[in-house]
């Protein structure tokens, strides 16, 4: 129980820190949200009306304190730009980004795990070098190029997948998946390469442990050693990296969401920054803090499931 209390306290501290930091940045950052929203042709009366209706005419400190007070009541405020509740906007974008994270993590594991294990098993064979290089290439191609490349092949040439937009899950799994495949692939090709690297090094490190040598000397077959001992023990770093990948993807990729016109968290973040939408940014930063803390927590939980010696403390 104390463990959870400490975790929650830690979460609150993190939120407090990020929100104060965001607030401080807004003190310094030039740009007026009303002007950005209405543009160069805004009429002074319109600007005034917008400022008043969104509470932008109040001093920044007061707005921040209002926001903190609201947060305690579960109210994240209203976005300047969209004039909709921040919580609702984040929820909508989260559905999109979570779908993207879900599919891309599955793809990452489907590609990364077998290739990583295979590479570790066959690291001495000459075929290993080209395979590891191939995975390196996908890690090194800029996200933008990777996305356009995929769009060109699957949308323009083959015309089998849509190149932009998002269809909600309730419109049918097939449609939902169709929109998700390409952006997920753009993410997964890079992240699976990272996963491959970690699995590979982790298995290699395990293989040098004493217990493997003992098992070997006892005549246990290589495949058995790998399946029974090594894989289980190498899972820990794999989970660490997966946890980081999940929180990374849930944080939204500005470039990939931009190229695929995907209305996810990354898109919301870039819009909120460029329009100086203070409540929305604050909401997003809190959301991100939540994701980072939650992912860390889940990773720790999984550690203790895989290796009971690791206790939650």
């Amino acid at each position: 129980m104390r463990y959870y209390a400490r975790r929650i306290l830690g979460f609150i501290v993190t939120i407090f820190l990020v929100s104060v930091f965001t607030f401080a940045i807004f003190q310094i950052l030039p740009g007026d949200p009303a002007t950005v929203i209405l543009g160069v042709d805004a009429d002074p009366a319109q600007l005034e009306a917008l400022r008043a209706s969104m509470g932008m005419d109040k001093p920044m400190v007061e707005r921040y304190l209002d926001w903190v007070a609201g947060l305690f009541q579960g109210d994240m405020g209203t976005s300047y730009k969209y004039q909709q509740p921040v919580a609702q906007l984040i929820q909508e974008s989260f559905k999109v980004t979570a779908s993207l994270a879900f599919v891309s993590i599955i793809l990452t594991v489907l590609i990364g795990l077998p290739v990583g294990i295979w590479l570790a098993k066959n690291s001495r064979k000459p075929v290993a070098t080209p395979v590891s290089m191939l995975s390196q290439i996908s890690l090194s191609i800029p996200a933008f190029c990777m996305s356009i490349f995929l769009i060109y092949i699957f949308c323009v040439k083959l015309q089998i997948l849509p190149s932009f937009g998002y269809t909600p899950l309730n419109k049918g799994v097939g449609k939902w998946l169709k929109n998700l495949i390409l952006p997920s692939m753009a993410i997964a090709l890079g992240s699976s390469a990272a996963l491959i690297r970690y699995i590979y090094t982790s298995i290699n490190a395990q293989m040098k442990e004493d217990y493997i040598k003992t098992a070997k000397s006892k005549g246990v077959s290589m495949t058995n050693i790998l399946n029974k001992h090594v894989l289980r023990n190498s899972l820990i770093p794999v989970i660490t990296i997966l946890g980081m990948l999940v929180s990374d993807i849930l944080g939204g990729s500005i470039i990939i969401e931009n190229v695929f016109s995907f209305p996810g968290i990354g898109k919301l973040l870039s819009v909120s920054i460029s329009s100086r939408d203070f409540p929305l940014i604050q909401g997003l930063v809190v959301y991100m803090a939540g994701i980072v803390v939650l992912c860390n927590f889940l990773v720790d939980m999984l550690y203790s499931v895989i290796d009971p010696r690791i206790r939650l403390k």
Partner: peptide
């Protein structure tokens, strides 16, 4: 660790912008 978490939760673009 809290500070590192905070930094990770903080959008890099916003930081660069600032």
């Amino acid at each position: 660790s809290k500070l590192i978490d905070t930094q990770m939760a903080f959008p890099g673009v916003l930081l660069a912008l600032m």
